[in-house]
Design a protein around this nucleic acid. Structure first.
Lengths: 340, 340
DNA sequence: GATAAATGCTAAATCAATTCAGCACCCAGC
DNA sequence: GCTGGGTGCTGAATTGATTTAGCATTTATC
């Protein structure tokens, strides 16, 4: 008892018209001279039969599939990745598009395969996302397939969506400065390599540039800069542990991401010090842990969902200019900064 | 200078054959009597031109798109969701399939829309995933579209993939018992409603059943059971705080998920108590925070990626039996249990 | 040497849509 | 009465693959 799918021909038959007419009416073609009566009959028939067009058949004719490819180096592990996807899904749903997902693990071979697999399915465009925001070689696509880089940059002819790290960096410093911090501010996670090497991470370089610009504008300097390679809790912990071995205690910690701040909390707590009474902390990303910590961690959020949505919107827009589109990083104020 | 995609006809022309022949050869049809020479020519032509079949055209003819729909109520927020997706992607890639992703937010209207959108694109099957593992009403699909429920159950005629919570529950108790804990074991997160109401969460009910079964088998009883509705750090914190106000200290905490354990750590640390020297802790899920904590949290992991992969494998297998397919929950031993 | 069977391949239909050229009808105008 | 133009619609081609029926050859069989 296989119930065949309703086709356009079925609709046309029931409306007593040709499928040409039915097609034109359902697609709302403008200059067609079909009668109002015909319109009514077709729409009624389509509704009664529950007609849904076959996307494969349509896309064979016109070159549109209402489908977007989303290629990412990583889909799991961080909330960032899934946030981007969630945002993309939401924007796609708005525009009645659907998302084909592929993961590459950063492997160029899998990347090529993923792109081919998506092109085989005639996607209208591809969002190419990286978790470690960096400069990438934009894949070459056929002229009718648009490309938007997400959390990545490339040559100037491409469109990319990035967090507004520079302003985010400035915001973090402003939070501390506005709270009255002038002395004993320590930077945690600073890394000279990253600061220079654009290929490894563009956005972190900008984050640091924003931080330094705002410090300078306010006439402030860091008491110390702790260079850390891997920005994980364990590293934050040991860095702050050694910091606390010094005679002069820091008054404020500017951590370059939340896991570092997490490690800092642990080191402080184990020393019997309190956040923010003894040391203020501000950080970046707004990971889940930021809300878990006691007291809550004040942090400059990565706007994942906004970025994902923006990328899809740009892809579908078509008229949007090339270049970088920056998404604002929201300031999430919790309770880790003390008014001095 | 639009470079048209290479079609089967192009390959056939270059090989000096009809497209029928080219099609049969490239698809490796068995009983065809085409010459070895023809085989060579077609394969060479395809390789030289970089031919890739047009999936839309093919799926119009045969009813297969090499595409799987993945519908989830949530894609972001938890590592669990993205882990399932990652696993599904990996298995799909193995089988040269691609995944169409849709999010419903648990809203039945969006659910219907998502299913329709996927069916319009002729997906070969749908993985229907829930984050809050529970009993769902399985969507009705056409006979040629297979369905696998992921982290969800439904009537017996459907196929579903679930974590083996019962054994996981037993494993958690075994860890404590084997370490020598016999007294002062407290259950954190127990909830009578959940334990009874299968519709709200099947797997948590099983987790508890496994725990109770193992306790009984070993002749152990809980010193106390703290009923908590929302399993978040804040709730874990206050529960343990009040626990510590009692004269008799608990010796081991069995937390029903990691965020609760996280809150427990915080409450213990603020009281100057040490994990595991003063109190042992074991938990469930293996969230990211489990490795962040000091000392590392021993926990029974939710096998997200394995589950996601299993679901896709079952979908593609076709011969797999209906019913529940349980995926083992790995025991992640860190340092939160003391040998007594 | 005629017939049958095997070999190697092709033409045309098919899938479900879109789209272009054009058919039949009616009315107006000369 | 015949042309011209507008109206309302349809037929057939098209998209890129798969698949069935069947057409020429060649080879084997008696």
């Amino acid at each position: 008892m296989t119930t065949r799918r309703v086709t356009l021909a079925d609709v046309a038959r029931r409306a007593g018209l040709s499928s040409s007419a039915a097609s034109m009416i359902l697609n709302g073609r403008p200059d067609t001279r079909l009668s109002n009566d015909a319109h009514d009959r077709v729409h009624r028939a389509a509704a009664e039969l529950g007609y849904r067009p076959n996307v494969a058949a349509r896309s064979l004719r016109v070159d549109k599939t209402q489908t977007i490819g989303f290629i990412s180096d990583t889909v799991a592990s961080t909330r960032f990745a899934s946030g981007l996807i969630k945002g993309a899904l939401a924007a796609a749903e708005q525009a009645e598009h659907v998302i084909l997902l592929a993961e590459t693990g950063g492997d160029p071979a899998r990347e090529t395969e993923a792109i081919a697999a998506l092109l085989d399915r005639q996607v209208d465009g591809i969002v190419f996302a990286t978790m470690r925001s960096r400069e990438v070689v934009a894949p070459v696509l056929p002229d009718n397939t648009r490309l938007v880089l997400l959390n990545a940059t490339s040559d100037s002819h491409s469109t990319s969506v990035l967090p507004d790290e520079k302003r985010g960096g400035r915001a973090a410093v402003s939070l501390l400065a506005d709270a009255g911090h002038r002395e004993g501010i320590v930077l945690l996670g600073h890394n000279q390599e990253i600061e220079r090497d654009v290929f490894r991470s563009t956005t972190v370089a900008r984050r640091l540039a924003g931080i330094r610009a705002e410090m300078q504008d306010r006439g402030l300097t860091f008491e110390r800069e702790e260079s850390i390679w891997e920005w994980a809790p364990q590293q934050g912990f040991t860095a702050v542990e050694s910091l606390l071995a010094e005679p002069l205690l820091p008054r404020a910690l500017l951590c370059l991401n939340d896991p570092l701040a997490f490690g800092a909390y642990q080191a402080l707590t184990e020393r019997g010090l309190r956040v923010p009474d003894d040391v203020s902390i501000v950080s970046f990303d707004n990971d889940e842990i930021a809300s878990y910590l006691r007291p809550g961690l004040t942090t400059i959020a990565l706007p994942h969902e906004g970025m994902g949505a923006r990328a899809v919107e740009l892809l579908l827009d078509g008229t949007a200019p090339h270049g970088e589109h920056l998404v604002e990083m929201p300031v999430i104020v919790r309770a880790s900064i003390r008014q001095v």
